[in-house]
């Protein structure tokens, strides 16, 4: 099997399987959360039922343009994920991811709704908070493996995490923001009785909301892919290990979600920047001078 076929298979597998995996993960998330709270919780397949139902619901909006933005958001998330699993340049992958999220922010600030637009501003604050660490993670990979190309990163004999544990911790920290978990579910919230209703998603209904859910499934799988990238090396055993690490990370995120109260956005911003700065600098400097 030549390299191009392998890439093609990976990309197709991502496009086809990611929503199922992502949806299943979301179901598992709800189940575990329910158990942590002493409830029975819905079926693991509940997210799929939800999305199916949403797709049949009436879509309310002030204009079709908003739908187009949401469509672009989904398309670019899939594009980002495809680039990632095709094994291209990780820095470029992160740049495209940013562009994708931009469409989501535009969709939310399309209507003149106060809750939605406030949510959009908060989403921007979230991007401000996590973006430095995302770029530093790409730099970390480059420092550790000498390349930005994902296909070459996974061919190293030693896992990247050995060289960049600090950056790994920092990345997991900002993953809480990316996964929209408490304490950093600033731009939206799980419950529609917060001070800004459902924030960035307030004006999304029916099909548009379904698109958002599916985009999140894709995005989450891609982000867990980045987590796996820290672990995967040229040995076969690194793949099951990476999957295990992904599960542990996701479990930790759920645990944090259920044990921490939502904080103000300034706390998020300053803590994320502080952690990115300290862990990023220390880790990069150590790499620079020791290896």
């Amino acid at each position: 099997m030549d390299i191009h076929t392998a890439v093609l298979i990976r990309v197709i597998a991502f496009i086809v399987l990611a929503p199922f995996l992502g949806g299943f993960l979301a179901g598992l998330d709800r189940k575990i959360t329910a158990r942590m709270q002493g409830r029975k919780g819905p079926s693991v397949l509940q997210p799929f039922y939800d999305v199916a139902k949403l797709l049949n619901k009436e879509t309310l909006s002030i204009g079709r343009m908003q739908y187009l933005y949401m469509f672009c958001f989904l398309a670019f998330i899939i594009f980002t994920g495809s680039c990632f699993f095709a094994g291209l340049d990780i820095l470029l992958v992160f740049f495209v991811l940013t562009t994708a999220v931009m469409f989501f922010v535009l969709a939310a600030s399309f209507p003149n709704s106060p809750f939605s637009r406030m949510g959009a501003m908060r989403e921007l604050a979230q991007m401000l908070a996590y973006e430095p660490m995302v770029i530093l993670a790409a730099i970390g990979f480059y420092q550790a493996t000498g390349t930005f190309v994902i296909n070459d990163i996974v061919k190293q004999d030693v896992s990247a995490i050995v060289y960049i544990p600090g950056i790994f911790i920092g990345f997991v920290y900002i993953l809480t923001i990316k996964f929209r978990k408490s304490p950093f579910d600033i731009s939206t919230s799980h419950h529609a009785h917060q001070e800004m209703v459902k924030g960035i998603t307030t004006e999304l209904s029916g099909g548009m909301f379904a698109i958002l859910e599916i985009s999140h499934w894709y995005e989450n799988i891609m982000l867990l892919g980045v987590v796996a990238l820290f672990v995967i090396n040229s040995h076969w055993w690194s793949i099951p290990l990476a999957v295990l690490v992904c599960f542990i990370v996701y479990f930790i995120e759920i645990l944090i979600d259920n044990t921490c109260a939502r904080v103000k956005w300034k706390v998020m911003l300053s803590s994320a920047w502080t952690i990115s700065f300290i862990l990023g600098t220390v880790n990069l400097l150590i790499l620079q001078y020791l290896f």
Binding site: M65, V105, P111, M121, L124, M127, E131, P132
Partner: peptide, 22 residues
């Protein structure tokens, strides 16, 4: 560059949103 990119993103996007709101 890492931190400056984030701040750059912020001020441009908020301007873009402002212009495009309906």
């Amino acid at each position: 560059i890492a931190f400056g990119s984030a701040t750059t993103l912020f001020y441009w996007t908020k301007w873009l949103c402002k212009v495009l709101v309906q």
